[in-house]
Simulated assay, not measured.
Amino acid sequence: MTTALVLIDVQRGFDDLEFWGPRNNPDAEANIAALVKAWPGPVVAVRHDSVKPGSPLAPGTPGNAFKPELDDLVPDLLFGKTVNSAFHGETDLHAWLTDRGITDITVVGISTNHCVETTARVGGNLGYRVVVPIDATYTFDLEDLTADQLTAATATNLRGGGFAEITSTKEVLAGL
């Protein structure tokens, strides 16, 4: 299969709503789990190893672990990153994908307007066909915008900028 499923920061630390604030899309984890369960090709799991003091995503903390929906996951590639893009982590994701002849990526995870969007943009710039089932992502309210507004802006940015196709979990699953 020439498409990899890229799981972005599906970590327990994002459950700390006192730290992050209100989130959207309560069905995101179920949609991510459905994609993982059905995925016929390579799965890449990326973990955010925060260097920010007090972050619930810091290495060595319970929040750095993946969410329970991924407890049975044995990814083809697992690595950490300290920035938004999975293409700038401790593993050269572009080289790994290229070595395996992977030309398409489906990107899901947290948070929609940060790490998911940045990974999708870089992937698009590198020439991958990028698909984002937007209902398999979520984010948090930020400044004057709600999480739903930020998700809509991300979908518009990725689609309108030619970086990614925006779709749904149901549509991706139907195409497998």
Rank of each mutant, 00 (worst) to 15 (best):
M1S: 12
A4S: 08
D9K: 08
V10H: 05
V10S: 04
Q11C: 00
Q11W: 01
G13R: 06
E18G: 14
F19Y: 05
F19D: 07
W20I: 01
R23F: 13
R23P: 12
R23N: 12
N25A: 06
P26F: 02
D27S: 13
A30P: 11
A30N: 14
A34C: 07
V36W: 04
K37F: 11
A38N: 01
P40N: 03
G41I: 00
V43A: 04
V43G: 02
V44W: 00
A45M: 13
V46R: 08
D49F: 14
P53H: 08
S55Q: 00
L57V: 00
G60M: 01
T61N: 08
T61K: 09
T61G: 09
P62F: 09
P62N: 01
A65Q: 11
A65M: 02
A65V: 03
F66Y: 15
E69P: 00
D71K: 15
D72F: 09
L77H: 03
L77S: 10
F79T: 12
F79V: 07
K81P: 04
N84R: 15
A86P: 03
H88Q: 15
G89S: 10
T91S: 13
L93E: 00
L93I: 10
A95I: 04
L97E: 03
R100H: 09
R100W: 05
T103S: 13
I105G: 10
G109N: 05
I110N: 05
S111E: 08
T112I: 07
N113L: 02
C115K: 05
C115Y: 06
E117P: 04
T118E: 01
V122T: 12
G124V: 02
V131K: 07
V131W: 06
V132W: 00
V132T: 00
P133T: 03
I134W: 08
D135R: 04
D135S: 02
T137F: 11
E143C: 09
D144G: 11
D144C: 05
T146I: 05
A147Q: 14
A147M: 11
D148H: 11
L150S: 07
L150W: 03
L150G: 12
T151V: 12
T151H: 05
A152S: 07
A155D: 02
T156A: 15
N157W: 03
R159M: 01
G160R: 08
G162E: 08
G162Y: 10
T167L: 00
T169S: 04
K170L: 14
K170I: 11
E171I: 13
E171T: 13
L176S: 01
